[in-house]
Amino acid sequence: MAEGTKQDLKVVGNSSCAGGQYRRVKITGECTIAGNVECEKFSCTGDATVHGNLQTEELSMTGDMQITGDVEAKKIRGKGDLAIDSRICGEDVSFSGNLEVQGDCESGFLEVYGGIQIQGLLSAERLQLRMLGPCQAREIGGGDLDVKRSKGTIWKQLFGQDSSVVLHAELIEGDVVSLDYTKAGVVRGKDVVIGPGCEIERLEYWGKVEVHPEASVKEQIYLKERA
């Protein structure tokens, strides 16, 4: 399709349609898209399923979305539940809710309020994770990594249900790392702050380090050859 003739796709209500190249895609209600979608802006309020890859400049969603293929988006803004069966690559991602990715999640700036389940690598130049539920990633890597409990956890704490609000990861590597309530095998970084509730098997650093008294670090190694 030629550049100038891309159509908008608007869905209101319950329907299904074919994939393709569009200018703007707007879904209000429930929609299943069969095939790859390429568009400038994809917005969804309600429930959307894409059987294929999604490539867009901007993805904004409220509600439920499932994508079976790869997602490539410059900007992502969302609230709700986003499940991706493959991988996701974004520049600027801000999301509240639950993010589930079967493959890798690569991003420039990534801000999540809620929970994440990432089976592969989670990479971000700047990660800001505010946990409100169980979080899990096989491997986390990036520049500036900041993991904390969301303020909302205080309610869970009152009812003694905050023990699940923890991040599990095999390996965390970053230049500046600050972690709270994290259970990890290896944490490696230049400047590392280990906050309360952390259980770290092995910590390797070559800059500054700070370990909270309520954290446990089994092995702490200073890599002096890199400092």
Binding site: S107, S123, E125, G141, G142, G143, D175, R188, G189, K190
Partner: peptide
């Protein structure tokens, strides 16, 4: 290994992951 690579080249984790992305 990734560790040796960073040591040898002096690049940061941030750069490495940005270039990968």
């Amino acid at each position: 290994s990734k560790k040796e690579l960073l040591e040898l080249t002096g690049i940061s984790y941030g750069q490495l992951y940005r270039w990968k992305r």
